[in-house]
Design a protein around this nucleic acid. Structure first.
Length: 317
DNA sequence: AAGCACTTCAACCGCCCGCAG
DNA sequence: ACTGCGGGCGGTTGAAGTGCT
């Protein structure tokens, strides 16, 4: 059984705000401010219409029935913060904003309020919506194109000679590429496997928190010896393998699909297993847009370029 | 032109956390 | 230490808008 509703639904208005309601709320806050207290706001103004009839048993007791506005305090706050507040930006996000969002998402995940704090004029709600409706799709599309590209390359047995990843005779030839849709949540990092190799690109490019977790999990065991370490701690996978191996990230689903460290070991050179999907997408974009793209091995740079669609067509062709 | 499918985004919901008493 | 309150947050919903057939 859930908690009691925030407000007496019968006594507060819900749904879209009318221009008149916006005007009233804005005028009120312009004149009086919120005082940092949305609950007290109507009381201070002495404009409370009927707080006695408000459901005092409600969770937040957030009556915000001001100056003819029969709105829940939370609703007032949300409307102000997300729409009426001065200096808010509306409209398309710039490439720079895309990059910031991606890099922060790769680092901290869906902490929208923190991400919003780095983008003046943007709200957490804006960014959340933007990510869910546009940016995520853009990145997914990019990596799907990479996956297709990778498979087609494999089938034709041609490997780019310009790529440092082109170590064709790797054990990874036998490694499966796990379908993207089979991967579970990128936030489920429990029970990951860390396969410490020779300092591949993956680990070095990961977020601080995950990297430190990985380091803790590895407990200093990383060396040129391929080894597998199971850990209950949040972790990531770095296949390493030397020579600037690619980062490989996968979660429990992916790990079980691969089943076997011998498979994992070979993946550092020219093959890729996508796990922690969103994280990797964001990471790839981060790397590509931070000026490091030209230093990346093929999968990263390809995926990243696909994300922006710049070189994808050429790569497809 | 109509109907359907898909996308967008404002708004809501309910949980979590910090703080005050 | 405990409890209740209020603010803040992330996830989700659904109405409105847009595109497609």
């Amino acid at each position: 059984m859930g908690r009691a509703p925030c407000c007496d639904k019968a006594s507060v208005k819900k749904g879209p705000w009318s221009p008149e309601e916006d005007r009233k709320l804005k005028e009120y806050i312009d004149e009086n401010g919120t005082g940092g207290n949305w609950i007290a706001l109507p009381h201070k103004a002495g404009s409370l219409i009927d707080v006695a009839t408000h459901d005092r048993s409600c969770d937040a007791k957030q009556a915000c029935i001001i100056a003819g506005l029969k709105r829940c305090g939370k609703s007032c706050r949300l409307r102000w913060l997300n729409y009426l507040r001065p200096n808010l930006k509306h409209g398309d996000f710039s490439d720079d904003e895309d990059r910031i969002i991606c890099s922060l998402f790769a680092t901290i995940g869906s902490r929208w309020s923190i991400i919003a704090a780095q983008l003046p004029g943007r709200t957490d709600n804006d960014i959340k919506n933007y990510w869910n409706t546009k940016l995520k799709k853009k990145l997914v599309h990019g990596l799907e194109r990479y996956t297709a590209h990778s498979l087609s390359q494999r089938s034709s047995s041609t490997v780019s000679s310009s790529s440092s990843a082109a170590v064709a005779a790797s054990p990874a030839e036998a490694a499966p590429i796990v379908p993207l849709q089979h991967l579970s949540s990128p936030h489920d990092y429990s029970h990951l496997i860390y396969s410490g190799g020779g300092g591949g690109y993956g680990a070095s490019s990961m977020s601080t928190s995950l990297l430190s977790a990985a380091a803790a999990a590895a407990a200093g065991s990383r060396d040129r010896e391929q080894q597998t370490l199971r850990t209950d701690a949040p972790c990531l996978v770095d296949s390493g393998g030397g020579g600037g191996g690619h980062g490989i990230y996968f979660d429990e689903t992916c790990a079980s699909a691969i089943s076997g460290s011998s498979v994992v070991h070979g993946l550092g050179t020219g093959n890729f297993v996508f796990g922690g999907l969103q994280l990797l997408q964001a990471q790839a974009l981060l790397l590509a847009t931070s000026g490091a793209a030209n230093q990346l091995d093929e999968p990263y740079s390809f995926a990243a370029s696909c994300c922006y669609g710049e070189e994808a067509a050429a790569a497809d062709g």
